[in-house]
Design a protein around this nucleic acid. Structure first.
Lengths: 154, 154
DNA sequence: GTCGATGCAAAGCATTTGCACAGAA
DNA sequence: TTCTGTGCAAATGCTTTGCATCGAC
């Protein structure tokens, strides 16, 4: 769905526009990051890139992930554990998350009605929405018949 | 709306049940916290309690806010600035947040249209919403004329 | 040759913890 | 008297930054 190729193009463009330089670590980091796929933490990205380039340290990864976000090829998410996580992301497309508490599956949604209501609520306060975080946690109505159901944790 | 009295009762009960002791700092912190009203950071609570008890330090505030959450008289919220904020909380009532990026003010909302859409989206996936987190970050449309505007960070 | 990028270590923040002493019960 | 709470400072975990060097252009 998200192609490294497209990300490379975008990143290249961004760097060109801002007078930034293409480096081996940036190339490798983007590759590693896109191969990882999911919600990668800085440590996870670092560990993987070090397999190819042992010299790379935290500073470079932090700086590079920030660059990726600015270039629009990554999205930063902060979960409850306090550590930032990144997901491959292209352009302006955005989605919210619907998380099943019974099977851990994550569905994505983007609802125009909700977006519109958000804008209305904002405008009542003289505000214009810039971005938002919307996570819905839910239970399965299929009960035990749901094939994806995970065993209860406790 | 939220009564300190009820919070004191709740906290007292919790401490009793867990063999914890009632102290002057806990009393004062609960009062100060409830007087503050909304979304207090640890620094804000500390500053206010020090007006009454100059000796109190961060450690006590952190430990006490944690106790309040466990006792069910406070809710912890983590917004994107990285620092935890607490709000007085009793019972099950819920609301979402609208955060102004220009002045840091936090508004609360609870929109039936949005709640209804959430339920519809869930049901399309055979799910029933249990809880959610919804934060909208927005820019002020009043621009520089907004009296609450904070100076740009960089 | 410039000037941005890197790597290291040190610094920054928000938060937590170890420890000796204070103070509820 | 017992044991939890407090206050201080040091430690922690994640992230950022200063600086000398490296390397892309």
């Amino acid at each position: 769905m998200y192609s490294v190729i497209e990300a490379q193009r975008r990143l290249g463009l961004h760097m060109q526009e801002h007078g930034l330089k293409r480096t081996r670590q940036r190339d490798q980091l983007l590759e590693v990051f896109y191969e990882f796929g999911g919600h990668a933490s800085v440590d996870e990205v670092l560990a993987r890139v070090q397999l190819r380039m042992p010299g790379v340290g935290y500073a470079t990864v932090y700086r590079t992930m920030k660059l990726f976000v600015e270039a629009g090829v990554a999205h930063e998410r902060k979960f409850q554990d306090g550590q930032a996580r990144y997901e491959p992301h292209l352009g302006d497309e955005h989605h919210d998350h619907l998380i099943c508490l019974d099977c851990d599956r994550i569905f994505e949604f983007d609802d125009p009605v909700i977006e519109a209501r958000q804008a209305e609520i904002c405008s009542a306060h003289h505000l214009r929405p810039e971005h938002h975080r919307h996570e819905v946690y839910a239970r399965c109505t299929l009960g035990a018949t749901c094939v994806n159901r995970k065993p209860p944790t406790r």
